[in-house]
């Protein structure tokens, strides 16, 4: 029995090891190619750089120059950080109010928001980007409003689920002590929401950081985020600079990997919690 288990475990380990290698390989291959000359990539993507094909970090310079990658990184960071903060701040307030105040209006708001989660972006992409133009939301600051509106569904849904599980007694006690709803919310309720705040923040960060179509349609002409910058390099088929492309892919992946390894546990937990509820 024991030896059988050991053999089984060894086979499992070997299988997992191969699968892990398969998972990492595409990223490593892109990384390797980012150091090869632009004309040596498409023809032999699996070959290691040689003294003839190695170009050092030249691709990184041309990638940054061609796409304005540093700026793109800045826009992505700005939009993501402030949109996520805005979404968390306002949707948690809304979720608390509509969960605690039981009325027809509250449930109407709730079901409208939940309904929006179902509808794919293509349904509103044209009218939403026109709306953004008309209201002058077509800049990195204005797009935050769009993310609040479009992200409200999932975030309110997750927050309300959690608010329902908080015992009312705590809030009632604070009310007796003379708190007004604002004090009550910020001093008592918001701190209790902390675990689910992390979940909502992570889900929104992953969505907004990687989002392509919404920023492309709304601000893409003047402000390139990272996904827009990468797509921009594509250009016409065949004419694109593969070296710059590889370098940009690597530069796009690095921040995500750093983010992942600094808060891996809460990311996995948050993403799964969001999935199971959504």
């Amino acid at each position: 029995m024991n030896t059988k288990n050991k053999i089984q475990n060894t086979i499992s380990f070997a299988a997992l090891f191969l699968l892990a290698a398969y998972t990492l390989a595409p990223i490593l291959i892109v990384f390797m190619n980012s150091f090869k000359g632009r004309f040596f990539i498409s023809d032999a993507p699996f070959e290691l750089p040689t003294s003839e094909t190695f170009v050092g970090i030249k691709n990184y310079f041309s990638g940054i120059e061609k796409t304005g990658f540093i700026k793109a990184f800045g826009y992505s960071l700005f939009i993501t950080v402030f949109s996520v903060a805005t979404v968390v701040f306002f949707t948690s307030m809304t979720a608390w109010a509509i969960t605690r105040v039981k009325s027809k209006l509250s449930s109407f708001i709730y079901y409208m928001l939940v309904f929006s989660m179902i509808i794919p972006f293509q349904m509103v992409m044209f009218t939403m980007s026109k709306m953004a133009n008309i209201l002058h939301l077509d800049n990195p600051l204005g797009i935050i409003v769009l993310y609040l509106g479009f992200g409200a569904g999932l975030s309110v849904f997750i927050f309300s689920g959690f608010v329902k599980s908080i015992p009312l007694e705590i809030e009632e006690a604070a009310m007796m002590d003379g708190c007004n709803p604002l004090q009550l919310y910020f001093l008592v309720v918001f701190p209790v929401l902390q675990p689910v705040t992390v979940t909502v923040a992570i889900l929104n960060t992953m969505w907004i950081w990687n989002d392509y179509l919404l920023p492309y349609l709304v601000i893409g002409n003047n402000y390139k985020t990272i996904p827009i910058a990468v797509q921009y390099l594509q250009g016409g088929y065949g004419s694109r600079d593969m070296g710059a492309m590889m370098a940009c892919l690597v530069m796009a992946i690095i921040p995500i990997i750093i983010f992942y390894f600094t808060s891996q546990k809460s990311i996995i937990k948050g993403v799964t919690a969001g999935a199971v509820k959504g």
Partner: peptide, 23 residues
């Protein structure tokens, strides 16, 4: 207070989703 808690989200929701959806 109810308005204060819900209006910012609802206005953004109307701009980003509801009006574009109906239109």
């Amino acid at each position: 207070y109810y308005a204060l808690f819900t209006l910012p989200t609802i206005i953004a929701f109307a701009i980003a989703f509801l009006i574009p959806f109906l239109f």
